[in-house]
């Protein structure tokens, strides 16, 4: 069995409802995210929100990041459980939006500049270069976003949010359109971000069940209940309790693959 403890509450979504005109998109979405600690390991949380395309994942993503307000319900974050405000949760959209008119260095600098830390030009440069090295971006700092591949832009996008100092980072479909080798690299990258800080919490919104589950410690299944309009959390999968969390090579485990098939059948 894995040795871990669930400690303080980091995020709580309560009774989230979202309606557009009379159409119910999300219905009574409730879930909690706790800080998970492991002995001798500094590691954050990796949570997945799994659901079919068009089910309302992106809308929930925007609500969790404070970019849109739900019709009713609340999202509370941090130790003091305050209502989420845009800017407190980092967002990595599916198409890795960056400022096209800024070089990679300046894109990262703008993230750091909004972190609230008072830094001299040299200190900022050192921090950016150090992080760029960790994320294998050191050779691309003078380039513009259009000169980078999709995978490289994704790394810049994640690093930009890390430099802003956000502990929560939401990723919308990070595996979308990537080949299997690049998907493995994204796995490594996200684990790296998770290991940067105990309270770092990555929330992956995806329909790619196998890759998302393999990274996560907890998964929430977003689906529609029979006869009810609007998506809600229909199941919580505790991958830590099941012994699947933090295990490299888990994608080859046949019991894990059975779990993937089981979840697939419920979407």
């Amino acid at each position: 069995m894995l040795d871990y403890k669930k400690e303080k509450l980091l995020l709580k979504a309560s009774n989230i409802n979202l309606k557009y005109d009379t159409r119910q998109i999300l219905r009574d979405v409730n879930f909690e995210i706790f800080n998970v600690t492991r002995p001798d390991v500094i590691q954050g949380q990796v949570i997945s929100l799994i659901g079919r395309s068009g089910i309302g994942k992106t809308q929930l993503f925007k609500i969790l990041s404070g970019l849109i307000q739900p019709t009713s319900g609340t999202v509370l974050i941090g130790e003091e459980q305050r209502p989420v405000v845009a800017g407190e949760v980092g967002v990595i959209p599916q198409n890795y939006i960056l400022f096209k008119h800024r070089t990679i260095y300046n894109n990262l600098k703008i993230g750091l500049a909004n972190s609230g830390r008072k830094l001299s030009e040299n200190e900022a440069k050192d921090i950016i270069e150090d992080h760029a090295k960790q994320f294998d971006l050191q050779d691309h700092l003078k380039k513009f976003p259009a000169q980078l591949s999709g995978g490289q832009r994704q790394r810049v996008s994640i690093l930009q949010q890390v430099l802003t100092g956000n502990k929560f980072i939401l990723l919308d479909e990070p595996f979308s359109g990537l080949d299997p080798i690049v998907k493995d690299k994204v796995d490594e990258l996200l684990m790296k971000v998770s290991h940067l800080n105990e309270e770092n919490t990555l929330i992956i919104v995806s329909h790619d069940i196998i890759n998302t589950l393999a990274l996560s410690d907890t998964a929430f299944i977003l689906a529609q209940e029979p006869g009810k309009e609007g998506a809600t959390i229909t199941e919580v999968v505790d991958l830590m309790a099941m012994g699947y969390a933090w295990r490299p090579g888990i994608k080859a485990d046949h019991t894990f693959l059975d779990l993937v098939l089981n979840i697939k059948s419920k979407l």
Partner: peptide, 12 residues
């Protein structure tokens, strides 16, 4: 619109 959302997520 995602560009404005990026700005918001960067606390602008």
């Amino acid at each position: 619109k995602a560009e404005f959302e990026l700005c918001k997520s960067l606390r602008m």
